[in-house]
């Protein structure tokens, strides 16, 4: 796409990496569609409580298992709860988990990967070895083991804190759920980020401008944070956008299996597994969360592909 600059009239503002990338992204219709879907998701997740006509917990036993109608666009479930309100609260759960897990995983991955790539040596070898191991175990099974292992210690610790402080917050099982989900997911999600950052740093480390910075007598820390890392950000952003989608799917997967967020906290995953029990009679209970989850994950993938093309123009043939 290099000839685009010749055809287009020269712009007043100088072109930068980010402005070029944004221009390329806007031209990709699928990526824009993905971006729009995700913007709606963020909006709904942020303002959910003010948008839903019903509370996600309020039961109306006179209105159980209703098919979709004007009053309940997605129908109601077996306890007469409004499914649309629950799907909207599910967006909050999904978003919260995805963002927090990705932030933690990226922080761990960037720090470890940058140190390993920049300094090399024994630390680098150990790190690559650990990531190799982690990535050769099927993710889901690893999470299952971590989750099951963490459950008891965390519950015991929370119980002990409760006994100490009598703060009812420590007895809230939703918090234990979230800590477990965040913990086990972050523990398996950082290795790809670490490998990516390490590879980036390795390729940047010996560029002339880094050598120049070193010749000026700058410290390693400043070279790493000011010269190396800013140039490794592009691929990282692509990985983060894909990672957010993966984290969201993982959360719903665990909740589906009953080891993630447990009822009554709504999550798309546990709504799907509830719906699966009665799907022959009330398919809408299954259809609503499944369709929303499908649309969101597809949106993440389209956006990720678009970002990849926009930020790595050299990769395009």
């Amino acid at each position: 796409m290099t000839d685009g600059t010749i055809i287009n009239p020269p712009e007043d503002r100088p072109s930068s990496l980010w402005r070029d990338a944004w221009r390329r992204l806007r031209r990709n219709r699928l990526a824009v569609a993905g971006l729009v879907v995700l913007a709606v998701l963020v909006f709904v997740a942020a303002f959910g409580p003010w948008l839903t006509p019903y509370d996600f917990l309020s039961q109306n036993l006179d209105a159980r298992n209703l098919p979709p109608s004007l009053g309940h666009p997605f129908g109601t479930d077996d306890l007469g709860r409004d499914v649309m309100s629950r799907v909207i609260y599910g967006a909050r759960t999904a978003f919260l988990v995805a963002v927090l897990v990705t932030v933690v995983a990226v922080l761990i991955g960037v720090v470890l990967g940058a140190i390993a790539g920049f300094y090399g040596g024994r630390f680098d070898k150990t790190l690559m070895w650990v990531t190799d191991m982690t990535m050769s175990v099927p993710q889901l099974l690893l999470v299952v083991v971590i989750n099951a292992s963490l459950k008891q210690p965390i519950s015991l610790w929370m119980e002990a804190r409760y006994m100490e402080t009598m703060n009812p917050l420590y007895r809230n099982s939703a918090i234990i759920d979230f800590v477990l989900v965040f913990g086990s997911m972050a523990l398996i999600s950082w290795p790809p980020y670490a490998r990516l950052v390490r590879a980036q740093v390795l390729s940047i480390r010996n560029r002339p401008y880094v050598t120049a910075a070193r010749a000026l007598g700058l410290t390693n820390r400043i070279i790493l944070t000011r010269y190396v890392m800013p140039n490794a950000v592009g691929p990282l952003i692509v990985a983060i956008s894909a990672g957010l989608g993966t984290a969201m799917v993982l959360e719903s997967a665990f909740s589906f299996l009953g080891i993630g967020v447990n009822p009554p906290t709504p999550s798309w995953g546990n709504m799907i597994s509830d719906g699966l029990r009665v799907w022959t009679n009330y398919p809408h209970l299954l259809l609503a969360p499944a369709a929303v989850l499908a649309v969101v994950t597809v949106a993440f993938n389209f956006l990720g592909d678009g970002l990849n093309d926009a930020l790595n123009p050299k990769g395009q043939k």
């Binding site: 799907i272 719906g275 799907w279 299954l286 989850l293 499908a294 994950t297 597809v298």
Partner: peptide
Amino acid sequence: AIPAYVAGPLLM
């Protein structure tokens, strides 16, 4: 993008 536990129920 669509996980198996979504694709399966949708198809059903």
